[in-house]
């Protein structure tokens, strides 16, 4: 406890939920983003109630039909209701994006703490790996990982997640190094294993806002990347109505029923845009240091 009391105050309490919400609401961009995202999430969660048709229902109307009262956004080649599929699609596209970011955040933090805490050569090599992964074409890495693991949404989560690790690892490592230095200087003694816990307790509140901003900013990319992999045939498999997969299989019929392409694409675009809007504002509010 003596150590803690000598430490500078662990970050001014930037992470106050009420203040954050207020800051988001007064910003028109963030408000729009929040509304769109909420709508998409509600659509996804309550898809079984909201969607006029079942998840895998075929022949819900004439095939390749344009929007009608029976099929609000029309139907695809198999007579599946596009509106229902777009709603259900959110369940896959959004949750896959979120899972990817969580995966990356957890592994990235662990890696960052590890190399930052151990330091020395481990840190040098680890940082190098982060550097290389940072600019390395993430899609190449993801495709490579899917080749090892096989296709499927879960494997896409892992693949894109791994490619996203450096973003989190770098921030956490930096925070750990900073905390370590402070502890070292101010407590004037070498750190032991028990101190890792103390240190984590100290840095966690400090980096939490940054992590939240990073996670939000990465979420948009994660949704895009996972949908891209599904578009390339590496992710969701038929008949899963993931948005990227819907776009890929609907392409041939674009000219006969444009809504096959318009609506899943629009849903994807709106999801990514709303997340980005929120992320930008969150960054301004929570983490002015990284607001470039």
């Amino acid at each position: 406890m003596t150590v803690l009391t000598t430490l500078p105050k662990p970050a001014r309490s930037r992470f106050a939920a009420g203040r954050v919400v207020r800051a988001l609401v007064v910003n028109p961009g963030a408000l729009i983003g929040a509304i769109i995202l909420t709508a998409l999430v509600i659509g996804a969660i309550f898809a079984p109630l909201l969607a006029p048709f079942e998840l895998y229902a075929t022949d819900t109307g004439p095939r390749l039909s344009p929007p009608t009262t029976g099929n609000l956004l029309g139907t695809d080649l198999h007579g599946r209701d596009i509106f229902s599929r777009v709603l259900y699609g959110g369940r896959f596209s959004l949750s896959v994006g979120i899972a990817t970011v969580l995966f990356a955040a957890v592994l990235g933090s662990l890696f960052g703490v590890f190399i930052g805490f151990v330091g020395g050569r481990v840190d040098a090599v680890g940082s190098r790996i982060i550097d290389v992964m940072f600019g390395f074409p993430s899609i190449v890495l993801s495709i490579l990982i899917v080749a090892v693991l096989g296709v499927g949404l879960v494997n896409v989560v892992i693949a894109v997640g791994i490619a996203d690790i450096p973003h989190f690892a770098r921030v956490v490592r930096g925070a750990v190094l900073g905390a370590k230095e402070q502890l070292f200087v101010e407590a004037s003694r070498a750190l032991g294993a028990g101190d890792l816990r103390i240190m984590l307790r100290h840095i966690m509140p400090n980096i939490l806002p940054t992590m939240i901003v990073l996670a939000t900013l990465n979420l948009g990319n994660a949704i895009l990347s996972t949908a891209s992999l599904s578009f390339l045939g590496l992710g969701a498999q038929p008949p899963t109505p993931e948005w990227g997969a819907m776009l890929s299989s609907g392409r041939e019929f674009m000219r006969y029923n444009p809504s096959i392409m318009i609506f899943p694409g629009l849903a994807l675009f709106l999801a990514v845009m709303s997340v980005n809007l929120l992320g930008d504002r969150l960054r301004q509010v929570l983490d002015p240091r990284t607001a470039d």
């Binding site: 895998y56 075929t58 080649l77 198999h78 038929p238 008949p239 299989s249």
Partner: peptide
């Protein structure tokens, strides 16, 4: 023929 597989599946 992915669409054929989907039709068979359904």
């Amino acid at each position: 023929e992915p669409d054929t597989a989907v039709a068979v599946q359904a």
